[in-house]
Design a protein around this nucleic acid. Structure first.
Lengths: 187, 187
DNA sequence: GATTTTTTTTGATTTTTGTCAAATGCTTGT
DNA sequence: ACAAGCATTTGACAAAAATCAAAAAAAATC
């Protein structure tokens, strides 16, 4: 749990009361490898924080699944568009390995915002950080070719290489399984 | 100015006092076609709202410029990573045509958040909406081929086709000028 | 308004990456 | 430990898009 507190503190020094209120509203959920946190079509009620493990978010294109993101220990994860608008999710999120997750419901979070200003602010700051991250990802996808995208992933999230399959990584990097396999073959 | 009020009201019903305080801190800036709002290397002090006109945000890759986004009347625009962290901008933003912009400084905005809660909330809601938009853009870039990306742009922002050059559009759609030209040639 | 400069289009060719198919390697359950 | 089922690699070929080069069109400058 202290991992969560630590992460929040990096963004803003919360009042003790606010932090307690926040932590009290949350629950722990353990999911095993391959289990889904969120499925397409359902309304995503929760914001998750990964205490342990790693997850993958993906869409379906035709019948193949396309990885949109990998998230690791110490990161927040949810189907953002579904969570924000409380409408059915387009994406699926599954555990890449056994995970321990902290989570809070949309309703509880919104309730906390009304009584604890600083929680709304820390949420806003986290959102800003995540916004920058997606924007960077978008730019990065324009600027690099297949090999460079793979090398960037190696730099940024090397753990992924162990935890995800070639197919999952290939679709994330926007290339075919075979291309990724060939890139790995010659360095 | 009412365009701005209208946009804010779509997100949240602001208190009259808050709205007034917000509007009072802002200023109007007129820029002519091709003029830069933000240049690489400078700290972006302002959040802009486009009252009239359209702008383009771009990066440099080697010596060529790559369009990252087009923004139209009624949209907020800034170099988000620079504005949020008050660090030097990686991107440039220029006017695609003569523009009338409303803008507020980072400092003033942060100041307003302390005295007007609902302004911080409306900012957060806007940020959420923009987050979803970037995420969609990222997914869309994975799911479509060159022709489909062009068709999508035609659907989403047809005005762009008139206002931007082939080169600017091509880099935005992540294809060469020649490819875009050929796509337009046969429907 | 003619000329220069820039932008856009068109054609030929090359490069990159995708697709299909087969072979190999790795897991998992019994 | 073995078989059955997946996942990954490798090879041959095809498709998509990039690059290079030149012509045509449009815009800017004098």
């Amino acid at each position: 749990m202290s991992k969560l507190t630590e992460t929040l503190n990096k963004f803003l020094d919360l009042e003790q009361k606010s932090l307690q209120a926040f932590l009290n509203k949350g629950n722990i959920r353990e999911v095993s490898k391959s289990e889904k946190l969120i499925s397409k079509g359902e309304i995503c009620a929760n914001l998750f924080f990964i205490l342990k493990g790693a997850v993958r978010s993906y869409y379906f294109k035709d019948d193949k699944d396309i990885t949109i993101s990998f998230s690791m220990e110490g990161e927040f994860i949810t189907s953002m568009s579904s969570f924000i608008s409380q409408s059915p999710s387009y994406e699926n999120i599954e555990a890449l390995e056994d995970c321990k997750l902290w989570h809070i419901s949309h309703q509880d979070l919104m309730g906390l915002f009304d009584t604890h200003r600083d929680l709304e602010r820390v949420y806003r700051l986290i959102l800003e950080a995540y916004y920058i991250r997606v924007e960077e990802q978008l730019i990065f996808s324009k600027f690099k070719n297949a090999r460079e995208r793979y090398e960037e992933l190696l730099q940024q999230k090397p753990e992924i290489i162990q935890k995800a399959s070639v197919g999952q990584i290939a679709s994330f990097l926007d290339m075919s399984i075979e291309t990724l396999s060939r890139i790995r073959a010659n360095l």
